[in-house]
Simulated scan of single mutants.
Amino acid sequence: MTMMAQETAAVQTDRGGAEIRRYELAAFLRSRRERISPEQVGLPRGARRRTPGLRREEVAQLSAVGVTWYTWLEQARDIQVSVQVLDALARALMLDASERAHLFQLAGATDPTPATSCPSVTPALRQMLRGLEPIPALIQNSRYDIVAYNRTYAHLLGDLDAIPPEDHNCMLLVYTNKEWQASVVHLEETQRLMAARLRASFAGHLGEPAWKMLLKRLETESPKFRENWERYEVVGSRSKTKEFLNAHVGHLKLEHTDLWLGPEPGARMVTYTPVDEEGRERLERLYDIALGATART
């Protein structure tokens, strides 16, 4: 076989594989759509529904995409799908972690959410997080994604383990999660400061899909975020005292410290150390509660 013939065969193979993935993606979307009842997503069933599960136009509405575009996707047409749209579809179709990963794989895309494993979180860093207990600690990137955390932190602001991995983002949680918000003393001040810190980091990530996806979701789901984001305030990182109202042990006054994991601002270990003996005792109680919860799972 000549070199040209080999190249032609390779191109045909690639095209064939892409076509197979499109048909698999179309079938997967249909199957997920048909298993969800209108009531599960807050839509009326109506008297003349023939389609099992959701209609195509309902999925399009929930995902904020065009009906025609979504129909083409289920027809396996050769169209480009952004990670933002894939994320919206995953949430609209209530996909679990395995299904979400399958969706992105079929689309030939990389999932940019915190659910994706982070290679910078080494076994040594995970051991450090455990070794700091009962002090709450997490590893976070410049986008506020929570990429690793210890057992005390998991119960500092509600139950982090019960939240889907794709929602493990402090910015998203402080603006949209009621349990998280109820745990933060001085919530409005915290929200404004976090938005200003996010804008400071955003300058180094303009145009990146993961950042665009996070900002679009925040602007869609939180009027308060839109208000703070439009202030164009910028604040750098600094240590500070934070106050939390924990559902298990009550008021906690903790010193927030960022420990940078590289020469450039980005990934960091965040620790919350008690400022007094009462706080230390309450963190130890919270740690005991966290160990009990872990043993039950």
Rank of each mutant, 00 (worst) to 15 (best):
A290Y: 00
A101N: 08
L138M: 07
D96F: 06
C118E: 15
Q140R: 15
A64M: 09
Q6W: 07
K216V: 00
L62Y: 08
A101F: 04
V185F: 10
Q84F: 00
R192H: 11
T122F: 06
D258G: 03
D167Q: 15
Q140Y: 02
W69P: 03
F202T: 02
A47D: 15
P263I: 06
S82K: 11
R50L: 11
L25V: 15
L73I: 07
E284W: 07
R33W: 05
A196D: 09
Q6Y: 11
K178S: 13
T68H: 09
F225R: 02
R21T: 05
K178Q: 14
P265L: 01
L218W: 05
A88F: 01
L132T: 06
Y272I: 03
Q80K: 06
Q181T: 12
R192M: 13
A154S: 11
S63G: 06
Y287Q: 13
L286T: 02
V185K: 12
S82R: 12
A109L: 15
V184H: 03
P265G: 01
S98T: 12
S201W: 04
R217G: 00
T113R: 11
G207W: 11
A115P: 03
H155E: 08
A60H: 03
C118F: 10
G207D: 08
R77I: 13
T297A: 11
N150G: 12
K224L: 10
V11E: 15
R238S: 13
E233V: 05
V85G: 00
A137N: 05
A290L: 02
V81E: 02
P112N: 05
D96H: 07
G204F: 06
M94L: 15
T273Q: 11
T241R: 07
V121L: 11
Y272M: 07
G207S: 03
T190W: 08
I135G: 00
R282T: 09
G17L: 15
I163Q: 06
Q127S: 12
G262D: 13
I36P: 00
A107E: 06
N246P: 01
R143L: 15
K240Q: 14
R143S: 15
V147D: 00
L54V: 05
A109E: 15
D145Q: 07
I79W: 03
R91F: 11
T271K: 01
P136I: 04
M194K: 08
L173M: 14
E264R: 08
L254Q: 02
E208W: 07
R15Q: 15
L86A: 04
F28Q: 13
R199V: 04
A295V: 09
A293G: 01
A210S: 10
L103M: 13
L95R: 01
T110F: 10
E243L: 10
T220R: 14
R35W: 06
A90H: 09
E264Q: 08
L172G: 01
E284C: 11
I79N: 06
V59N: 01
L173G: 00
L125H: 04
R197N: 02
D159L: 02
Y272S: 01
G17T: 13
S239D: 15
T273E: 07
T176E: 06
H102M: 09
T257W: 05
A295C: 09
A92G: 09
I135E: 04
E133C: 14
L89F: 15
T2D: 12
A247M: 05
L254P: 00
S237R: 05
A27N: 10
